[in-house]
Design a protein around this nucleic acid. Structure first.
Lengths: 338, 338
DNA sequence: CTGTTAGCGCATTCAC
DNA sequence: GTGAATGCGCTAACAG
């Protein structure tokens, strides 16, 4: 690899000084090491002139810091995670990091593989959306003292930092809203995975029902669907929901909401008259569709800022910051679907 | 940095062999170098036992290949680019690459900075969504012999590989469809940037009008809007369009289409009776909204596959493949908006 | 068949 | 104030 890239030695030779000197100057340590202003200026100038760019691989190897952060989401194509990626990118850039990303597809093996690859690449830290059944592996990760932060979900029984939105509160608000509007039989459609965010949303929903005295212990109105073949499953479940006489549905996330809207239309049900709708998350579609879908928007930007802040603290290792669950408030968006 | 990670020397010491030997075995060159089966097995076992993971920084520095690809899109939060990122991720992973991403926001300076950072990080290649006014810098990039491929758009007068969808054809089909349905005065709403994809779409639109004898040389129905303060601008432009008596609109991309739908609704116009609508791209919203929006879906997955294939060829440098513009056919999706 | 050696580009400690 | 020497972890050319 004859790498035609300019390196320290090129500018050192041109100025007939040592490589070390150049390195010192370019790392901004001229003052500290009391290098003459003249020389400093000359070095900087020729560096610019030659278009010098440090080889971060070499620098990383030497310093033990790659300057790279790993971001592990469920699927970067999902706008929720895409938006998250964007904010993480912005915040990371402010601190001089670039970000490697990976999509786990909610698959623990994939997540594990990706994390291993990222470790191998010496990322300085990771932002992880944990998936179902990944606790074991993640706890082994923790022992390796590589800094990471959970985002969007946390792993219970797990001493690690996590930044999430207040899922319980969002679900509670959304459900209460339906109740206030007079809906009596409220279904809750969720994914069938054991994740903190899902569980918290179910709990928020259930609490709201209980507080309103609408909880029927004999009839479970929480409907769970799997990821694969979502379309077919949704059709079945939605029919069940209507056959059971539910007058409204609380969708636990953007995807469930959007996909379901397609079916509800084909059933000839009119929103909000025949069926009331609320959903977690606020994708574009909820705004454009008629009637607009009332929903709970997560504070994605804030979550990302906090996550990066915490991560940076862990990386710098200033003080042993104790693990904490940071739960951030979201925003109820009122539209016309209930 | 006391890096508690296991390295070659750890397993070499444990087995009392040399580091080089271990490296050879773990790179799968045992046969080639005629290392005994026994030793080979022992090395592999203890590597696994100790949980060895190669330090890719060191490997990259030595081999001159980082194993990282750079992906530069306009905005990863835009589902179009998010989807693209996902397919790039998948294809890259098949070849053993991880991907660093960056969002340019259609800003040439940002793009330039990001490319420089990526070069600094020794990416093995880049997939770039070029932006307006970035030609100068990009052509300097080209001289540096670092492999890259344009995607989504190409830079005209530029000898580089590019993978795009057939924008001309898509626009032509969409416009012709409106014409066939009897619409006479068709507006075209686009971003006011000089990008190949936009230009090709305008050309496709214009050709379709001309072929149908609907082109009025005295009246330009191509409306251009800027990025910033899109909402305010859209309101103005859409009013202009209706005041001019247009009976239909061709939106040049997903964002323009989605955002405009919000306004059209408030104007009390009914689709497709009062105004016919078609759009480039196929976001979820176009499917969910009523009536569904007829649109042209780009072959994102195929584009990504081709882009990675070309990029890999350039990286391996097998043969000097000559620059080519690869234009891939998209798919017309018929719904009820016209 | 196996081990030794030399560097990839950089930052840093220690001499001068 | 400055230069030389060392080594981060790994691969590859070269000796045995």
């Amino acid at each position: 690899m004859p790498s035609n890239q300019v390196k320290l030695i090129d500018i050192a030779r041109k100025l007939d000084v040592s490589v070390g000197l150049v390195s010192i100057v370019l790392s901004g340590k001229s003052k500290e090491r009391r290098i003459s202003n003249e020389l400093t200026k000359k070095v900087i100038e020729t560096a610019k002139e030659l278009g010098y760019m440090p080889n971060q691989l070499a620098r990383g190897l030497r310093t033990g810091k790659s300057g790279i952060l790993g971001l592990l989401v469920a699927d970067i194509a999902n706008p929720f995670f895409g938006t998250m990626a964007r904010y993480i990118e912005n915040e990371a850039a402010k601190l001089g990091y670039q970000v490697l990303f990976g999509s786990s597809d909610e698959n623990p093996e994939k997540l594990e593989d990706l994390i291993n690859v990222f470790i191998s690449r010496q990322v300085d830290g990771m932002i992880i959306v944990p998936v179902n059944k990944s606790e074991n592996y993640l706890s082994s990760l923790q022992k390796q003292s590589i800094p990471f932060v959970f985002i969007d979900r946390y792993c219970s029984g797990f001493d690690a930092h996590a930044v999430v939105s207040d899922n319980y509160d969002g679900a509670y608000q959304l459900t209460s809203l339906l109740i206030d509007k007079g809906y009596k039989k409220i279904a809750n459609l969720v994914y069938n995975i054991q994740l903190s965010n899902i569980i918290d949303r179910i709990n928020g929903y259930t609490s709201a029902l209980e507080n309103a005295g609408l909880n029927d212990p004999d009839e479970d109105l929480v409907f769970k669907v799997g990821f694969d073949q979502l379309d077919a499953r949704l059709d079945t479940v939605l029919k069940q929901i209507t056959e059971k006489g539910c007058d409204s549905i609380f969708f636990a996330n953007n995807n469930l909401g959007i996909q379901s809207l397609k079916f509800i239309d084909t059933y000839g049900l009119s929103i909000p008259k025949d069926i009331g709708i609320v959903s977690f998350d606020n994708p574009e579609a909820f705004h454009v569709v008629k009637p607009g879908i009332t929903c709970f928007e997560q504070p994605i930007e804030l979550m990302c800022k906090q996550a990066i802040t915490v991560l940076q603290e862990k990386i710098l290792g200033k003080k042993e910051i104790e693990p904490a669950l940071i739960s951030l408030p979201g925003k109820l968006i009122m539209r016309e679907s209930c």
